[in-house]
Design a binder for these strands. Structure first.
Lengths: 239, 239
DNA sequence: TAGTGGTCTAGACCACTAC
DNA sequence: TAGTGGTCTAGACCACTAC
């Protein structure tokens, strides 16, 4: 059961996406929304604040909440979304090849990345084939004490689905870093590099609800197929 | 005069950054913070919500607000920050070369990017030299009706400073896109490419407080010198 | 069971905008 | 001047956590 302010957020979001409320117009005022949704101003403001954070509207004092044109944004890449979830929004045919699946004792390097002292780690390498081209190499290291009993079948499908549906845990937040690296000879063999020498590397450290770090990932993308979109607000305090 | 909840946010943020409140410990509870800062729970919760959004803490029901280790994040690249502001946080010697500064009638291409029907546009190209290497090429197109009277001197220093301090306008939000592109021959001549063929291209559409689009930028970075960091939370509704 | 954060309400005062 | 969003308060009930 979604909370009231999330319901209102979802409702307004859909109306904006479906252009029932067109861009460059104003939302009803907070007072009007209060009577429309039978709720208090605080609840309405929570919903509006979410819309604002996600780039759907821009509110200004004395004026109201302006609907931004949302097409130009195309969100999905930002945030924390599994490849399986993302693949529904991709236009092409998507296939995953599990190139490597093993359980190994934690190495010195991984001890640092995963904040572990001892124990085992799953080492998983998956190649993402989109429309017949091998474009992405995902390398995952997962703490086997936190996420046990992984199998090749799970990994072929979706690790997040297993974590959230079968283990009943919740993936919560991640730190990500985007850089560009030289492709190794092995990577050039595994992927269809189409003459490129470089790869875009997205490193993620992913945490559960209780703030335990369970996953370190390097996701390597052929440079011409990489695109990242974000919506940023200027902070007028920090500088 | 900063509002109360922003003061509390800044205070807690500093204490976390200076490790007066160490990571992996809990903040005082909301009740305790209420008496500590002589404020209502709602005000405290606004401050905590900001800390949460920016990756400083992680709150869970029944437990409290856990301080995350923040060093591992290193924020500055995310958000909406001028190069001059960023340069204070860069380790090396930074220099800007204004390679092109002209006012031109809007072209067909720019009409689309800047949502303009007619009028003039400033076309600015700046090369960023860091520690003696020409690494970044910033190409700006700015609506001259919205931001008038630009000079080469302003552009050499900081456009945002001019907009905010001299014109009294406020830079508010931006949509950004990161891709990788082939460097043109001209770009290879302007920058010290060090053998690279590709550039990381960050396109931004930047808006003022009143939601007018005033700037379209392509910021092109030598791939080995590009790094982008973000903090992402998982949304448990959208998929 | 006591303490924690999550949600929701009702009311107040303010600065800003548009007229 | 009327309407708008921004801030702040006080109080209530809830589900979850740790013991």
């Amino acid at each position: 059961m979604l909370s009231k302010y999330l319901q209102i957020y979802e409702d307004l979001k859909q109306k904006i996406e479906r252009k029932e409320i067109p861009s460059h117009t104003f939302l009803p005022s907070e007072n009007e929304l209060m009577t429309l949704y039978h709720s208090s101003r605080d609840t309405i403001r929570k919903s509006l604040s979410l819309l604002q954070q996600n780039g759907y509207i821009h509110t200004s004092k004395g004026k109201g909440s302006l609907v931004l044109d949302h097409e130009k944004i195309a969100f999905p890449v930002a945030g924390l979304t599994s490849f399986k979830e993302l693949s529904h929004t991709l236009p092409g045919d998507v296939m995953t090849i599990v190139h490597c699946f093993e359980k190994i004792p934690v190495t010195t390097y991984l001890k640092k990345e995963l904040y572990m002292q001892k124990g085992d780690v799953y080492h998983i390498e998956r190649i993402r084939d989109i429309d017949g081209e091998k474009i992405i190499l995902d390398i995952d290291y997962i703490n086997a004490q936190v996420i046990p009993h992984l199998t090749k079948e799970i990994v072929q499908d979706s690790i997040y689905e297993y974590i959230e549906n079968d283990l009943g845990l919740k993936v919560s937040f991640a730190k990500k870093e985007i850089t560009v690296i030289q492709a190794s000879d092995q990577e050039k063999e595994l992927l269809d590099m189409d003459g490129f020498d470089l790869l875009v590397c997205v490193k993620s450290y992913t945490y559960l609800e209780d703030a335990t770090l369970f996953q370190y990932t390097e996701s390597k993308h052929r440079p011409d197929k990489f695109r990242f979109v974000e919506f940023a607000r200027r902070s007028h305090m920090d500088y």
